[in-house]
Amino acid sequence: MGASKGAGAARNGSGKNAGGGRSKTSRPASSRPASPKEQKKYQKIAQQARPRPPVLINCIKAFLTGGVICLVGQGVLNYFIRIGVKPPDSGGPLAGVMVTLGALLTGIGVYDVIGKFGGMGSALPITGFANSIVSPAMEFKREGYVLGVGARMFQVAGPVIVYGLVTSVVVVLIKMAVMALTGKS
């Protein structure tokens, strides 16, 4: 009848022997958790099948993106020096300008597009640091201005500041110790 027209129903008639592509020597399915050995074996297969990232192209894009951002930074720096800011004092204002640029580009929804192209080329400059603060602030606005914006702002930037500060303090302490020991101070 209706069903017998279907290829499925017709095939079904062959019943139990409808092995199809399944060989008779098929290993029975396991019913216990995978052993560490089986896991290792599979992970090796998965590792080999995994497509490689286009490292060269990614690096070229990162180089160009990062280079251009630093070029802009150099323009700002040269301007500061021209108006008479001493080079050692220019770092703070330079960071301020770059962070502002990064924040604005994130706000108008451009920085993630740059990031998709540039990868670490746009994440590593301090504009990327600004992006990492502004993007969660915008995203979690819906969870409120205190526990959303306020608390989530430092999702990525927090660790950067924490590790930057801790490392720099430790580095300076070690430097002091070395100087004391070698009597150079």
Binding site: P51, T106, G115, K116
Partner: peptide
């Protein structure tokens, strides 16, 4: 994305997998 990964405007590249 916001639950499992990064905020939408975060400029990260997605891995090949």
């Amino acid at each position: 994305e916001r639950q499992y990964r990064y905020p939408l405007e975060f400029g990260a590249q997605r891995p090949v997998t």
